[in-house]
Design a protein around this nucleic acid. Structure first.
Lengths: 263, 263
DNA sequence: AAGGGATTGTCTGTATACAGGTTTGGCCTT
DNA sequence: AAGGCCAAACCTGTATACAGACAATCCCTT
């Protein structure tokens, strides 16, 4: 009878999630990506009851959704464990997202996009240009870039005007290292960071141009190629594991941190 | 105290689903696809408690999973409703599956496939050939075709050796009209049925050949084109809505069956 | 002393009770 | 007669109680 009395301390952030289940999902995701709940460890519901200060029902819902999301894997004997990823799985997830975004770009080019939306995307890219023109990039600039980059990718996935596809892209981007902005932070304190972002920005421009010109094949190919940047950054992280610029890196298995028997 | 006493009557089929939640999910899916629970109608949990003879907990789990699966949509005010699809949404879902299977074919060709698996796929295609050589196709032949076709597609998605991708293909195929074998039944009593299946079979052979020859681009393009057959069949169904060869057709909105206010 | 079996503890799956909210229907008022 | 307001019923989200299963540990037997 102790848990119910200890009400949730509203966390430090102003996360006013709607239902208890959503709150649980958000906080669990944070914990997993922050490297709290370590990769491969089994999740005990009762421990979460205590830690989250809510009953098992919303926790079970959150676990199930995180399982569908791919961050947890359902154990055959019941329950869930924090999932770990091989480098190749991460590469595949990035390839998957690139392919889906490529499809979105192609459909957008084939079907045509309302001028208002194109204008919106152009303005978004203009803001990124403004950011990159500053030269040196501080932390604020980087977080601004991440935000704008995410916005552009979302606009792009919306241009296909396909709820089915948009949802699937959303899904494929839910893993942090597969998302469009996931690995940007890796470059944050790299001297070549700005150059890489310039390349990315060029690709952004070209994709948008291809869509505006109704060049479907070009748009698709460009968008796929664009995702290779993330894959490149994945390679960088795996070579220099010390840079912890990305949330969730510790979920990626390396030869070193893999236990004796991993699945 | 009536529900617990009335044990589940084990259904008419020998569906020995594991947990109650899985059983609920399976039977709900059947009901939705059979046109029981009509499209757009809200699902009341308590009604299902009575109909399924189990408590709300596994039912809620099943509803949540069907929501993620795309067959139900979550209502803003809570609860779920049977989802309906526009013809374009269905076409997009097919395109999505084709794109994903194309990616799988490309990866398989790039990475190479173990000879044993290639042999397995070839034997699968041989069996289909045997079936098609019979000439006229009765119902048994068709169900055998559907099974073999599904098996081939599953083998193909496995050839990429990517759990991430296989899972996503599985997901994209969960909607019946998006699945590889979904529209095959449409042709079941069409005189041109066998011709269409011959074309499909030719594409199967070519894809497998491309993968074996490590021709990645060709494999991807072929697999994408292969999905256009399903799209063609979708067009047929929408023109002649009377043929009810496919489960779930009634979930597709037409101008006629769309209520005054849809969504 | 070592191995096997039994017992106990814990954990998940399931059932149900409870509270807050939303919707619907009826009644009153204009 | 029509519209608005109030009330009641239902329905979802949440909490908790219960039962079966799995596992680990300890004791007994060989």
């Amino acid at each position: 009878m102790s848990a119910p009395s200890v009400r949730i301390q509203e966390s430090e952030a102003a996360e006013e999630g709607g239902s208890q289940a959503v709150k649980a999902q958000q906080r669990l995701r944070e914990w997993i990506l922050a490297g709290d709940l370590p990769g491969g460890s089994r999740i005990a519901e009762l421990a979460l009851v205590e830690r989250l200060g809510m009953s098992r029902t919303p926790i079970r819902a959150a676990l199930m959704r995180l399982g569908q999301e791919g961050l947890l894997e359902a154990l055959s004997s019941g329950g869930y464990a924090v999932r770990t990823f091989s480098e190749r799985e991460v590469a595949d997830a990035i390839e998957l997202r690139g392919t889906l975004e490529g499809l979105a770009a192609r459909l957008a080019a084939e079907r045509g996009v309302r001028p208002a939306v194109l204008k919106q995307a152009t303005e978004c890219l203009d803001q990124i240009d403004l950011l990159l023109r500053q030269g040196a990039l501080d932390d604020d600039s980087f977080s601004a870039y991440v935000r704008l980059n995410g916005q552009f990718h979302k606009l792009l996935s919306g241009m296909a005007d396909s709820a089915v596809l948009a949802r699937e892209i959303e899904r494929a981007s839910s893993l942090p290292f597969a998302s469009a902005s996931g690995f940007v932070g890796v470059q944050a304190h790299n001297p070549d960071a700005r150059d890489m972002l310039m390349v990315a920005q060029h690709q952004h421009r070209q994709v948008l141009d291809a869509i505006a010109q109704r060049e479907a094949g070009r748009a698709e190919a460009l968008m796929r190629e664009h995702s290779r940047l993330a894959r490149h950054n994945l390679g960088l992280v795996m070579q220099n594991p010390q840079q912890g610029g990305m949330p969730g890196v510790q979920l990626i298995r390396t030869q070193k941190n893999t236990p004796l028997s991993q699945r």
